[in-house]
Amino acid sequence: MPASEPPAGCGPVDYGVPHVAIIMDGNGRWAKNRGWPRLVGHRRGAERVKEIVRACPDLGVRWLTVYAFSTENWKRSTEEVLGLMGIFARYIEKEADGLSAEGVRMRFIGARERLDPKLQALMAGIEARTAPNTRLNLTVAINYGGRDELRRAAVRLAEDAAAGRIAPDAIDEAAFAARLDTAGIPDPDLVIRTSGETRTSNFLPWQAAYSEYEFTPTLWPDFGPAELEKVLAVFSTRERRFGGAKA
């Protein structure tokens, strides 16, 4: 059963999780369980994003990265893909004013070239409009695949080396990370996957190398701020050693 919403009047609390990444899974199943079309679940999922975005600052989260559409999702039906793209466009148009007013900076990662030019323009516009904001950094992965991102970063690095902009012996982890889509964004402390699946699905393989993971059976449209807070509270009890020995 999904967690109930937090009671009104609860004050801010910091669980020590500055960056949360979420694989938002289960929209289709949520709708199917109710006898509704899959796109109804995706629309409800978009509403959940808005609720989670608003809850994050009061929970100490300063960076939120969400997996909206993978490079593999093109395999879905044309109807579903077009519907999803429409939902993305409407979300950006509808939420632009609210995100800006609430101090949210919005960015996108992934290969944009395959996306509709109008959607690309909307993405670039909201990125520019919200760039000065610092209360919450929201990163949305659209047409994103971790292996594809690594490939593209390797191409950039090879081009820079061939052009003499970087010496081969100067290539280190920092040089490679600077050519990823997430350059300038800290690695996630916690990755959450909803819907009961326990795979990472090609999401942030480089960045999440030392992240903690939490897999919840809750379908994304049912994953509210109260459940996010419970997950953060569990995370705060974990000891992260990054390869070091336990003290």
Rank of each mutant, 00 (worst) to 15 (best):
R48M: 13
A162Y: 02
P205R: 00
T200Y: 10
S4M: 04
L232W: 02
V13T: 11
V40I: 14
V49D: 04
S100L: 14
L138F: 10
D97M: 07
A101D: 14
E229T: 10
F235T: 05
N202L: 05
A247N: 08
A170D: 15
R48G: 13
D160V: 06
R43T: 11
V49A: 13
F235M: 09
M123C: 09
G243W: 01
R152M: 03
R34W: 12
P57L: 09
L59D: 04
N73H: 13
T139F: 02
V61F: 05
V140S: 01
G35V: 06
F69C: 07
A162D: 13
F215M: 04
L232P: 01
E51I: 06
D172Y: 05
P168E: 11
T218N: 04
G164K: 12
L228Q: 01
L136Y: 06
I109T: 03
A68M: 12
E149S: 08
H42K: 06
G26N: 04
G244T: 13
P12S: 14
D189S: 09
H42G: 10
L115H: 02
V17D: 02
D172P: 08
L138N: 02
Y210W: 15
T71N: 06
T65D: 05
P57A: 06
L115C: 01
S77E: 09
F235I: 03
E95N: 11
F88T: 03
C56I: 08
V17A: 14
G164I: 14
P12R: 11
A68Q: 08
R105A: 15
A121K: 14
T78P: 11
L115G: 00
E95S: 11
K230M: 09
Y210E: 14
L204G: 03
A31M: 07
A96C: 06
E79N: 10
L99F: 12
E149I: 05
L219Q: 11
A31V: 09
Y15T: 02
I23P: 00
T200D: 04
T218Y: 02
R129H: 13
L122E: 09
S236E: 02
I126C: 04
I109L: 07
T194Q: 09
D148N: 03
Y213P: 00
E72W: 11
A153C: 04
A226Y: 00
T182W: 03
E80V: 12
A167W: 04
S211L: 06
L82F: 09
G243L: 07
I166D: 12
E113H: 14
